[in-house]
Measured scan of single mutants.
Amino acid sequence: YWITCCPTCDVDINTWVPFYSTELNKPAMIYCSHGDGHWVHAQCMDLAERTLIHLSAGSNKYYCNEHVEIARALHTP
């Protein structure tokens, strides 16, 4: 949970406070499906809480801010 998930990541173990109602003692993470995949903080991706809950409940693929354009290009005929 205490990783630098992207170039603009500002989640710090020493200063972090809950942002989403689902967070208690660690930041919400979401899995990016690009390549071998990697974890990113939901807050760093500017996800709305409703979107985070929807993604967490389903089996939808998610692409982080850095990889979403690549994913779109691969799926565009």
Rank of each mutant, 00 (worst) to 15 (best):
K61D: 02
Y62Q: 04
E49W: 04
T4P: 05
A73M: 08
H41Y: 01
I53F: 11
Y63E: 09
V68R: 07
F19S: 07
V40K: 04
I3W: 07
Y1R: 02
H67E: 04
K61N: 08
A48C: 10
L74F: 15
L52A: 07
F19R: 07
I53L: 11
G58S: 11
Y62P: 01
E66M: 14
V11F: 03
I3C: 08
V40M: 09
C9L: 01
I53N: 15
V17G: 01
N25L: 14
E23R: 00
D46R: 13
A48P: 13
G35E: 14
T22W: 08
G35N: 15
R72A: 15
D36M: 08
C64P: 01
H67D: 03
P7R: 01
S59W: 05
H34F: 04
L55Y: 11
H67V: 03
P77C: 05
I70Q: 11
A71M: 08
N60C: 06
Y63H: 12
A73V: 05
A42Q: 02
L24I: 07
C44S: 00
S56E: 14
L55R: 08
T15M: 12
Q43K: 15
A71K: 05
P27G: 00
Y63L: 10
G37C: 02
G58F: 05
R50T: 14
H75S: 10
T76Y: 10
N60T: 11
V17R: 11
A42S: 06
H41P: 01
W2C: 04
K26A: 05
T8Q: 05
C44P: 00
T76I: 07
I13H: 08
E23I: 00
A48V: 12
S21Y: 11
T4H: 05
H75A: 12
N25K: 15
C9W: 02
S56N: 06
L55A: 08
H67M: 02
P18I: 00
M29R: 14
D36K: 03
C6G: 11
N14G: 14
G35R: 03
W2F: 13
D12C: 00
W39H: 07
D10G: 11
A57P: 11
T4M: 06
A57S: 14
G35I: 09
I70T: 06
E49S: 05
C32E: 00
E49G: 04
S56D: 11
L24M: 04
H75R: 12
C64T: 00
L52G: 03
R72W: 07
N65C: 07
H34K: 05
T22G: 03
A42Y: 02
S33V: 07
P18F: 02
I30F: 04
H34L: 09
D12T: 05
G58A: 10
H34Q: 14
R72I: 08
L47N: 03
V11G: 01
C6L: 04
C64H: 00
H67C: 11
P18A: 11
A48K: 12
W2K: 07
L52Y: 04
S59R: 08
L47W: 02
D46L: 13
R50Y: 08
L24P: 02
Y62L: 04
K26Q: 06
W16A: 00
T8Y: 02
E69A: 09
N60K: 08
W2Y: 14
T51D: 10
P77Q: 12
T8E: 14
T4Y: 07
I13W: 08
E66I: 07
L47S: 05
P18E: 04
P7K: 14
L47G: 02
D46S: 15
